[in-house]
Design a protein around this nucleic acid. Sequence first.
DNA 1: TGTACATCAGTGAACGCGCGTTCACTGATGTAC
DNA 2: TGTACATCAGTGAACGCGCGTTCACTGATGTAC
Lengths: 227, 227
Amino acid sequence: MHPASSRPTTPRQRARATTIDDAKAIALRQLAEGGVEAISLKAISLELGLTGPAIYRYFASRNDLLTELIVDAYDDLATAIGAAASATATRSGAAQLDALADAYRGWALGQPHRYRLLYAAPVPGYEPNAQRLVDAANRTMATLIDVYAQTGISSNNPLTKRLAKQLRQWGNNHQRGSASPDILYLAVITWTRLHGFVSLEIENAFTSMGVDPDTIFRREVDALTTS
Amino acid sequence: MHPASSRPTTPRQRARATTIDDAKAIALRQLAEGGVEAISLKAISLELGLTGPAIYRYFASRNDLLTELIVDAYDDLATAIGAAASATATRSGAAQLDALADAYRGWALGQPHRYRLLYAAPVPGYEPNAQRLVDAANRTMATLIDVYAQTGISSNNPLTKRLAKQLRQWGNNHQRGSASPDILYLAVITWTRLHGFVSLEIENAFTSMGVDPDTIFRREVDALTTS
DNA sequence: TGTACATCAGTGAACGCGCGTTCACTGATGTAC
DNA sequence: TGTACATCAGTGAACGCGCGTTCACTGATGTAC
């Protein structure tokens, strides 16, 4: 929750970390209330009781702040699903997957603005820091793979050699070389299905249909282990 | 493609329809190049060779233009998947579903900016015209249901009475009362899975993983008919 | 422990920008008799 | 077929807005000897 204040030493550094956290909190509120375009460095600075330019002591540019927020969100989501898996580590694979899926969905429903931020279209002129974003996304994915590997769930759907090779390569890139292609494949389709469901749910697609999302979600999660 | 010019009678009406179409084309280019926030009424008007305020003869507000674009996109997508189904109407249900899925994915990959527009977060202060958007989304969904009903595919996964009732109600709301709950359920999860896959693919999630999207997509579509 | 210097937070003025939208208006096109 | 009127497209001036960002600067806090 407060990565910027994780290693405060001097008073000045502590004050600085606090200001950064406060600024991010305001930015998240702006995001929740008005979408990405409502995030304004100047407005944040004024709300902090400072003048406009002061904020540039803390963020080099608006894009920098956005990058921070996205990275934080990825890390936060990864923590949430990791925690859910830890809490159910002694239970069956299916139960662990249930917990993982619920954690993912719960995180998104609880803070839809942050979830949208993760998968928002790339802002034009936003290449700088792209590596940080990719890294953060990969950390989240790695957590998902870890949880999956831990469940002991396996797929009965044989992969082509080509796909298996690609998946193994991908696992290596994530320092997850030990994970089998089957697990990696399941992680991928779990991700696409969770994202599809959840991203529609946060736009209220199901409530406007008059259909209970919980029931369908449960069935979709079950389908992952029985296909 | 040109809904505004579908019923031109007088020269003046034709000129008007042409201007509207031109304006929308420019808006779509702005969308493709810079995202939603890059769509500007004033800039469109100037590019049309008019002065700024002239555009208000054609669109009452920026939100109105956005609504037009979204409705057009829904209709266009519905047409695309409907056409794919018609073209394969004499083939097997699985083949029709393949065609449907490919059409959906192809439409999105071909114009990612318009696909994003469909599922973009609601712009704050955007309630007016909400009904038009809901109607357009429903038309698209109705097309998907029709195609599914036509394939003759059925689910072997029994639904709870409660879910079946909700689905039937939902079908009635779309003038699709004849469709069975099984079909309606399949339509829903087809939608969530297609959306999950495609929305990640247009953000290049798979290419950055080094995994071939075509193979996984095919497998996911197959999974729909064998679960 | 005290002094000299370096670092850092914050100020205030200013830049250029493009946006959505309103208003009173002119002149051209279409319509009714 | 011609005239009187209504409709409509487009103009030009103007509004208020908030934004990101740069720059030269002051004063406070921290650091080295």
